[in-house]
């Protein structure tokens, strides 16, 4: 399994000395030989996406490009906070072969299973 952790998950933490992070929405699916994680990070570009893999934990940090926008706001629904979310990885994942790409604010992480963990057919002799 690929477990999003509760500790870093909660939205709008309000301790004053801590940065406020938005939790990106994710889809996670398991295929035969890999897990695929998709995270929504609108406004985040390739250069401002950080992916950390440490001790069986995957952390995605996406910073929005805070371009100075012209004019005055009439109506605002978007948040200016950056994105962050941590996932606990299944030990079967081969951390050396994890790949990440970002396209139109959607991060796709491919987490291949190690060779030993893949289902194998055993020949009967």
């Amino acid at each position: 399994m690929l477990n999003p952790q509760a500790t870093t998950d909660s939205q709008n933490q309000t301790r004053p000395d801590e940065e406020v992070w938005l939790t990106p929405r994710v889809d996670i699916s398991e295929q035969k030989d890999e897990y695929v994680l998709e995270a929504e990070m609108p406004g985040v570009a390739k250069e401002t996406l950080e992916v950390l893999l440490e001790n069986n934990e995957l952390t995605l940090v996406g910073r929005r490009a805070h371009r100075e926008q012209p004019g005055e706001p009439l109506h605002v629904e978007s948040s200016r906070h950056h994105f962050r979310r941590t996932f606990e990885l299944d030990p079967v994942i081969d951390a050396n072969r994890v790949s990440v790409r970002i396209e139109q604010g959607l991060v796709t992480v491919r987490l291949p299973k190690s060779e030993q963990a893949k289902p194998r057919r055993i020949e009967v002799s």
Binding site: G43, G71, S78, Q104, L106
Partner: peptide, 21 residues
């Protein structure tokens, strides 16, 4: 999807968050 609207002297600028479309 979240929508913002801004006004400059010459134009209105609307932005919507639509990741992965």
């Amino acid at each position: 999807p979240p929508l913002d609207l801004r006004e400059t002297p010459d134009a209105f600028i609307a932005t919507l968050e639509l990741p992965g479309m």
